[in-house]
């Protein structure tokens, strides 16, 4: 799940300065779950913008906003509303904003800040658990990711900074390596702590990452 938060309304108004007619785009996936860009928030935004004297030419909640074909299909249905707008306010993650820009060719404004790939603990409580590093090591670390959950992203074990099992950076945050140690102990894999993990292939997480061809199924 892509976790997002709404930008302040003041910031959005700055973006929209000079735009009289606005079309609003929401997302039916992540931004709906986060309650930052679902139907309810899109409708609220419409009212708020109208309260500021803007004309909202229309709105749509895409399923999802990061799917280019879905965006194009949605915009065909709302062709007039989209075309008559000075700009589009996109209540979706950064992927959604860019798909909307590509599909519409219009001026787009982001309404959200995209925060992280998170898991949902309960409603409104999200934790970052994966950094999309492209080289998963969860097999060796008892299913707890040190790349993401150790503040320093250390791969071989903890630094010397933990205090009562908490991170030197934030006393609320668990030391990921103590969690890993305890988990490995529980599942009888403590020997994995002593395995040396060589320097990470950062290139897998840093290069321009695209998959242009659908890979054949493993069985061929």
């Amino acid at each position: 799940m892509i976790i997002s938060e709404q930008k302040s309304f003041e910031e959005m108004l700055e973006y929209l300065e000079g735009d009289k007619k606005v079309f609003i785009v929401g997302c039916g996936d992540c931004a709906t779950v986060c309650q930052t860009g679902g139907e309810e928030q899109v409708k609220e935004m419409k009212e708020k913008l109208e309260g500021e004297g803007k004309t909202v030419t229309g709105w749509i909640v895409l399923n999802p906003a990061c799917h280019l074909l879905e965006v194009k299909r949605g915009f065909r249905e709302k062709k007039e509303e989209v075309n008559s707008a000075d700009s589009l306010l996109v209540m979706a993650c950064g992927n959604g904003v860019q798909a909307v820009a590509d599909a519409s060719g219009k001026v787009v404004h982001p309404a959200l800040n995209t925060l992280f790939l998170g898991s949902i603990q309960r409603f409104g409580q999200y934790l970052e658990r994966c950094s999309l590093c492209g080289e998963c090591i969860l097999e060796q670390t008892g299913g707890i990711c040190p790349v993401t959950r150790c503040t320093k992203g250390l791969l071989n074990g903890p630094c010397g900074g933990s205090k009562d099992g908490k991170c030197e950076v934030d006393p609320e945050k668990d030391c990921a390596w103590e969690l890993i140690f305890n988990r490995l102990k529980e599942i009888g894999q403590l020997e994995k702590i002593k395995e040396f993990r060589p320097p990470k292939a950062r290139s897998k997480g840093q290069q321009w990452r695209v998959i242009l061809e659908r890979k054949a199924a493993a069985s061929g």
């Binding site: 071989n156 074990g157 903890p158 010397g160 933990s162 205090k163 009562d164 099992g165 030391c175 390596w177 103590e178 140690f181 305890n182 702590i193 002593k194 040396f196």
Partner: peptide, 20 residues
């Protein structure tokens, strides 16, 4: 290496890290 640890996990980890 940190000889004084405040949790069992930390004590064991410090020794394991030393070996590594």
């Amino acid at each position: 290496v940190k000889p004084v640890s405040d949790t069992d996990a930390s004590t064991e980890l410090q020794l394991a890290m030393m070996e590594k």
